[in-house]
């Protein structure tokens, strides 16, 4: 008998109930951010403008040369657009990604442990990062500005955004949950975040030797932006399916790491209110 069958038709399945939780958090977080509309818009436009500055850098570099390896200006803009959109997506939905280490160290996980939902998802989704909307908007607009708007291509880009966002998020998350095993790992988690961001923003041909191995294993920037670019330029369903499987493999791996780490968690008996 399959475990996916819901024994009680009135009660939603575990997956549906967690998707509802995700949707509810998204709604409430967005409503909370929109409460201060001026601040929200300032952060969104500020972040988009902040990211735009790098277009100038690349435009100037490419005014002096034609290609860096196989990458022309449009290819670099693609990886920038995808990296920004994926980062934005991850931080809108899972706003606590880069707070997990602090949450564990300060014993704030207790509040989540008592709730009847998956701790991992609950912790990650309970907050949003307002400026991430600027990253997402910047990524989508940059893609359309450089590659034009064709519905099929745009849909493919959005698919990449979701899965690359999940992959990027789970790598940063993995850096954070090392706290379970090693104590204060603020430096390591900051480095992991910076590595993920930095490796996704430069043409693949820049990286050689050990670094090339690194970007397809521990810090899989290759699967976040470089492989999607290859699939985008030479589409095949098999390649897309394989990429999604790899992405989900990393996500599952980080989830397992969290569950493993959670066993080592010791409550700080901290009394906190969580509404």
């Amino acid at each position: 008998m399959s475990t996916a069958v819901n024994p009680n038709p009135k009660k939603p399945s575990v997956i549906v109930s967690h998707l509802r939780l995700l949707a509810a958090y998204f709604r409430f977080n967005l409503a909370a951010a929109m409460e201060y509309r001026g601040s929200f818009l300032l952060q969104v436009f500020g972040m988009a403008l902040n990211n735009s500055a790098f277009i100038i850098f690349w435009a100037i570099v490419y005014s002096r040369i034609n290609h860096i390896g196989e990458y022309g200006f449009r290819e670099v803009m693609f990886i920038w657009a995808l990296a920004s959109a994926a980062f934005g997506f991850a931080h809108i939905i899972f706003g606590n990604i880069r707070q997990v280490s602090r949450i564990i160290m300060q014993g704030e996980l207790d509040a989540y442990l008592l709730q009847p939902k998956d701790v991992c998802l609950n912790v990650l989704c309970s907050r949003t990062e307002v400026s991430a909307w600027g990253d997402l908007a910047y990524g989508l607009i940059l893609f359309m500005a450089v590659w034009g708007f064709a519905p099929g291509e745009f849909l493919l880009f959005c698919t990449f955004t979701v899965f690359s966002g999940l992959l990027m998020g789970c790598i940063m998350f993995s850096g954070e949950i090392l706290t379970f095993f090693l104590g204060n790992t603020t430096v390591i988690s900051r480095l992991v975040t910076e590595f993920v961001i930095s490796f996704t923003l430069y043409p693949e041909s820049v990286f050689r030797g050990t670094v090339k191995w690194l970007i397809y294993s521990l810090i899989p920037a290759g699967f976040i932006v470089f492989v999607p670019l290859k699939i985008f330029k030479l589409f095949s369903w098999q390649a897309l399916g394989l990429l999604i499987l790899i992405d989900l493999g990393y996500v599952f791996g980080s989830y397992l790491l969290f569950r493993l780490g959670l066993r080592r968690y010791e409550s700080g008996n901290l009394i906190v209110g969580k509404l």
């Binding site: 201060y36 001026g38 601040s39 300032l42 952060q43 436009f45 500020g46 972040m47 403008l49 902040n50 500055a53 790098f54 100038i56 850098f57 400026s131």
Partner: peptide, 16 residues
Amino acid sequence: EENTAFFWIYQKLSFM
């Protein structure tokens, strides 16, 4: 209340 965006812009202008 929210002035970080100005800092980002200053920072990026310096960077560029």
